[in-house]
């Protein structure tokens, strides 16, 4: 069915699929009627898939979110949008290929898109730095978003990063300020912004292009203040407790929707977007068009007020009385 590398929890499915394929081969080579047996395995397979894929644990979703065959930012740019015109550079220090961006069309809309891009192999990852952007990536993203504001184009940001790059040069060029400045400036951009977490929503590196009027997540994406491994290392003193951390952090799209941190979960094909890039891209497209349509009808002052209040309300606390 697919040529993707199965994840550990998918192995029972793969085994059954292999059995079914064997049976089909044998049926083709002989006159014996195996249709009953085949039907039995098919039913079992459907049931098993349902059981596994409908009950994915947060940690299993993290693994899907990191799958190397998962559609990345530029795959979505290809299948969800048209006529991508890539724009390069932060105008100061360099070009960050971990953060591509440019003009795209989405049906009738002209849009500015920016996002994190990972590589599938070592060579690509040397270029893309595993989707971990440097300060120049965040500054390029802001340059393009400010251009979008100038030409009155809505902005779509596509988030997929394990985190901003923790390196010497990144610190020397003020990675923290690059992210912080984006947070402040994005809050005031006078065009609609939709942020979508495609795969990994790794902490500040994700949030650095994550301020928007809508925050959407693909079904198997995660969004978290710290990686499950990082959390486990601090709290349980051992990275092997990452599955427990993933649950405790409530980082899945489903949990974040329940907590009203995100606006909508975009469904993925059964088993994850890596099984079917096209369907995933179409689901994203449909959702983006709907939200873009809604946002474009809002008066810009009201839009900015709503965006401010959207982030203003995040937090759980208590106090005696009230000011």
């Amino acid at each position: 069915m697919t040529a993707t590398e199965p994840l550990e929890f998918e192995k029972p499915i793969v085994n059954l699929e292999r059995q079914l394929a064997d049976l089909r081969d044998r049926a083709a080579d002989s006159d014996i009627d195996m249709s009953t047996e085949m039907k039995r395995i098919e039913d079992k397979l459907t049931k098993l898939k349902g059981e596994i894929y409908r009950n994915l644990s947060p940690w299993q979703r993290v693994q899907i979110a990191r799958h190397t065959q998962r559609p990345y930012m530029l795959d979505y740019v290809e299948h969800t949008f048209d006529d991508f015109v890539e724009l390069h550079g932060d105008r100061h220090i360099g070009e960050d290929e971990a953060m591509p961006g440019g003009f795209v069309r989405l049906e009738g809309h002209r849009v500015m898109v920016v996002g994190h891009q990972k590589g599938r192999d070592t060579k690509e990852n040397l270029r893309r730095n595993f989707g971990s952007a440097h300060p120049e990536g965040y500054r390029k993203a802001l340059r393009l978003m400010k251009m979008a504001e100038k030409f009155n184009l809505p902005i779509i940001t596509l988030i997929d990063t394990p985190g901003a790059y923790p390196g010497i040069e990144a610190e020397e060029r003020n990675i923290a300020e690059a992210i912080a400045f984006n947070l402040r400036e994005m809050m005031m951009l006078r065009v609609p912004i939709i942020a979508v977490v495609l795969g990994e929503g790794g902490s500040g590196g994700a949030l650095g292009i994550g301020i928007g009027d809508r925050i959407l997540m693909m079904e198997n994406a995660y969004y978290s203040v710290i990686s499950p491994e990082g959390c486990a290392a601090i709290l349980w003193k051992d990275r092997k407790y990452a599955p427990e951390s993933a649950s405790a952090l409530k980082l899945s799209a489903e949990d974040l929707k329940k907590m009203e941190v995100i606006d909508e979960v975009i469904p993925e094909p059964m088993g994850g977007a890596h099984h079917d890039h096209i369907t995933a891209a179409h689901n994203l497209k449909r959702t983006l068009i709907k939200h873009l349509h809604d946002l474009e009808s809002i008066d810009r002052d009201a839009l900015l007020e709503q965006r401010y209040q959207k982030f203003r309300k995040f937090g759980e606390f208590r106090e005696k009385g009230r000011r």
Partner: peptide, 26 residues
Amino acid sequence: GARMHEGILSLMQMAKTSGALARHHE
């Protein structure tokens, strides 16, 4: 840094405080 025990809500405090500073700046 962020307070891990509050998960995504702690991350969102970065956005919230920066948003308030955006208005103060303006």
